[in-house]
């Protein structure tokens, strides 16, 4: 198929990988309720966890728009699961930029894919966004809705306007690392089996 337009098959691929990806991230995301530092550690955990399915997804991407649509779906899912809409535009921006980077390597260039995945991972920080912007009321809400003071204190020690830059950088760096690991796993298993050319 040489068409530039996305077909139904592409949409189905996007849907499947978004579902798998979401299940993986959700499983790791649940850990955050054990301790607030784990919430901050998402920047390490999630890029690594999501890398294998995403690298397989990247191997199926051939046209512009697939990564963008995926980021829109993620934004919708994040909204429905109660993460708020403040981060949604940022998630979509990360998706579009990642898509453009991958396109620059015509979706084949390994280096571009790694960079693209790193940028894509910065969506995780979009979820911290409400914590930063509405810090005061967020804290009050946490306490009022039954979280302990300890939890709130630790959360704000880990995530504030000073650490956010570091968190974004961590996201991107571990995105790179995850991409390398994911790529090697995809190579090891899927290229041998002939699922990926």
């Amino acid at each position: 198929m040489e068409t530039k337009k996305l077909t139904a098959k592409d949409f189905i691929t996007i849907g499947i990988f978004t579902a798998i990806w979401f299940v993986v991230e959700f499983a790791f995301g649940m850990l955050g309720y054990l301790h607030p530092y784990i919430v901050a550690a998402y920047v390490v955990l999630l890029p690594l966890a999501g890398a294998i399915p995403m690298m397989l997804f990247y191997s199926k991407v051939e046209k512009f728009g697939m990564i963008t649509i995926m980021s829109v779906l993620i934004a919708i899912i994040m909204f429905v699961t109660g993460m708020g809409f403040l981060g949604a535009p940022l998630i979509i921006v990360a998706g579009v930029v990642a898509d453009l980077i991958a396109r620059a390597g015509s979706y084949k260039n390994a280096k571009m894919i790694v960079i693209s995945y790193g940028v894509f991972c910065s969506w995780i920080c979009a979820n911290y966004f409400p914590i930063l912007v509405t810090a005061k009321s967020y804290r009050k809400d946490l306490l009022d809705s039954g979280f302990s003071k300890e939890y709130a204190n630790n959360l704000f020690r880990a995530i504030n306007s000073k650490t956010i830059a570091l968190l974004v950088i961590c996201c991107v760096l571990f995105g790179f690392l995850g991409a390398f690991l994911g790529k090697s796993v995809v190579k090891k298993h899927f290229e041998k089996a002939g699922i990926v050319q």
Partner: peptide, 13 residues
């Protein structure tokens, strides 16, 4: 369609 089909697949999946 892009959003509809993808979302439907996510739900079904």
């Amino acid at each position: 369609d892009s959003i509809t089909i993808s979302l439907a697949v996510v739900m079904r999946f």
